[in-house]
């Protein structure tokens, strides 16, 4: 079993954090995980993306085509739409992206992360809504696994709100 994921957005949107959480969940189950981040030279406002490979054997950290790609801003959509495996899933942050995806051979899910996060918690949890949506597309990581990671990694005071956000994102994807 192997899952290849790409999380892409702007610095500050939590794309690397989401990647790390997915990796933590998978590695707890004994999988090999590899997260390769890519940053722009600028410290703020530049591209922040990561490629995540979850697999039973060690392999390339560079992904040819991903099973699931999450794009948090329009530039990421333009750059990564072509990288989704046919039959894979492209998750679009419709709170920030008006543009539509062109491909018809993939599943496209548009989710207003910020609006959903604001409804169930606060806008700061938008990335957990996004993580929930990504988890829904995976066989390797379950919703329970992701909940455990939130409990493990976050301050106790933030756990409940972020789990709510995670679940809302998970449920949004049909």
């Amino acid at each position: 079993m192997k899952s290849e994921l790409i999380f892409s957005g702007i610095g500050g949107q939590g794309t690397i954090l989401m990647g790390k959480m997915a990796c933590t969940a998978a590695s707890k189950k004994g999988y090999n995980v590899t997260l390769s981040p890519a940053y722009g030279q600028e410290k703020r406002g530049g591209r922040a993306s990561c490629q995540v490979v979850i697999s039973e054997e060690i392999g390339s950290m560079i992904i040819s085509e991903a099973d699931t790609i999450l794009v948090m801003d329009e530039k990421s959509l333009i750059d990564y739409e072509g990288k989704v495996k046919p039959g894979g899933t492209l998750i679009i942050n419709s709170s920030m992206i008006d543009k539509k995806a062109d491909r018809t051979d993939i599943k496209v899910v548009e989710i207003p992360f910020t609006e959903i996060a604001t409804k169930v918690a606060t806008a700061k949890s938008a990335n957990m809504v996004a993580l929930g949506a990504v988890v829904k597309t995976l066989d390797i990581i379950t919703l329970d696994d992701a909940r455990e990671v939130i409990k493990m990694k976050m301050k106790p005071a933030l756990v409940d709100a972020n789990i709510k956000a995670l679940e809302a994102g998970y449920d949004y994807v049909k």
Partner: peptide, 9 residues
């Protein structure tokens, strides 16, 4: 730059 920044088990 890749091995340096990469995260793995």
């Amino acid at each position: 730059g890749t091995i340096a920044k990469m995260m793995e088990n």
